[in-house]
Design a protein around this nucleic acid. Structure first.
Lengths: 241, 241
DNA sequence: CGTCAAGACAGATTCGAAAGTTCTTGTCTC
DNA sequence: GAGACAAGAACTTTCGAATCTGTCTTGACG
């Protein structure tokens, strides 16, 4: 079987790799994405890169303007505030539905994801400002598992899309600004118990506080100007690392 | 200045025309969109049509699977129920914010849009089952104007995207199922007065009822199977009219 | 010295053909 | 007669060059 796999086209691969590079912080928000470099780096032609970029645009990770090329979505504090507010409202709503509609298998997945999160290493010694990749992945999976019981695919998709975009901000926050006395693990445990215990309103309220609290820490370390990790200087570097 | 307008590329035009054809009912949900026909009909090459289709995919109007081409998003009753539920929650939320945050100019636009809606002809004699295009456009503009006061662009975009997708269902409902004693104009007037009168909670509740009521009429005329205006028979026709 | 216009350059967009994959049709075997 | 295999056709996907648009530099004019 020398097949390329049914669901895997050349565009899909570039799309996946590009998204990974953006979410992983290897591509700087606000930087331009030029076709020649993209083609060379990912080993594809202009057409494939173009379609991958178009898809990323629909996911909100890159922006475009006619005849002005593609740009990694710039970060701004107004947008972070909007995004947080939207997540607080929508994710709490979806979680409430999830608690009301989820079956036993949903409970099972939530418990399993929480177990992984509990055992993940939160902070590494070599980067005290950011959580480890392992913990970040487990954290995302836990929250996704919590809302996964919602049978309304529309709402679920919206909540997931918003959460993914928030990852960008978490990635580029200069510091995670962890409060020493914050019991993050405790919040997650309470969230799980309220959900599995079918206390819908409580779970919804807990997740509201959880999201708002985390985001407020990101906001507090930010300045008033748009977040531009790379100044608009004429430095041709657009890839970090 | 013989410019083609800065924001107008070939792809943009095809994208706009295709969306119009889908939303206007000239392309049947569930039908395949083959490149040869598309290129001939819109007078563009494969590449341009492809990118337009990709954008439409991100808007939820068409779906795709690798190596299996593009398809106008099929309609189903589960999805209509999900979509309605999502709109009830999100649009009421956005309207509440709009009422709280909107300025005088927002009030002005809402009043203006309502004036146009009031004067638009609702039903035409030659198609007693569907509202006229004029009324539909005015109706959409009115609701959009109502929520336009919301300063949270994220939430606003979500609400608008959901509303646009709902247009597809309205277009393809076999009958609008209008109740004789329903005072649609009165509902809209109440909605406007509550909004401009800054009664946020009342406006939110009114729009919840408004959306749910309208959707329930669409549901009531539907069968239990996926809506497929064109049977999956081997008829090669995929364009109506 | 400041402002404006024309030309040159870089880069995005578009196009048509070639390659790979899936679906269909026809035939063969059990 | 029914099921399975294989060949052909149609279609989607990919690619690199050609075209067109936007921006920057350079020069002249007020």
């Amino acid at each position: 079987m020398a097949k390329q796999a049914g669901s895997g086209t050349r565009t899909d691969e570039v799309h996946r790799r590009l998204r990974s590079d953006i979410l992983g912080g290897r591509l700087v928000p606000g930087s331009r994405l030029k076709f020649p470099e993209l083609c060379e780096h990912y080993g594809v032609s202009v057409g494939a890169a173009r379609e991958a970029l178009t898809r990323l645009t629909s996911e909100g990770l890159v922006k475009t303007q006619a005849h002005q090329g593609y740009v990694v979505t710039p970060l701004s504090h107004k947008d972070l505030a909007d995004l947080t507010s939207a997540r607080v409202e929508i994710e709490s709503l979806v979680l409430r539905l999830s608690v009301l509609e989820g079956d036993v298998e949903w409970e099972s997945r939530a418990v399993a994801a929480h177990h992984v999160l509990e055992r993940a290493v939160f902070m590494s010694d070599d980067d005290p400002d950011h959580p480890t990749d392992e913990w970040s992945a487990a954290h995302a999976k836990f929250h996704l598992a919590l809302i996964d019981g919602c049978t309304n695919r529309r709402l679920l998709d919206v909540a997931r899309a918003l959460r993914e975009e928030a990852e960008l901000y978490r990635q580029w926050s200069v510091s995670f600004g962890q409060e020493p006395d914050r019991d993050l693990a405790g919040e997650h445990r309470a969230l799980l118990e309220a959900s599995v215990g079918r206390q819908a309103d409580l779970a919804a309220q807990l997740v509201r506080d959880h999201i708002a609290h985390t985001a407020s820490l990101l906001i507090s370390v930010a300045t008033d100007e748009p977040i531009r990790p790379n100044p608009p200087a004429p430095t041709p570097d657009r890839r970090a690392g």
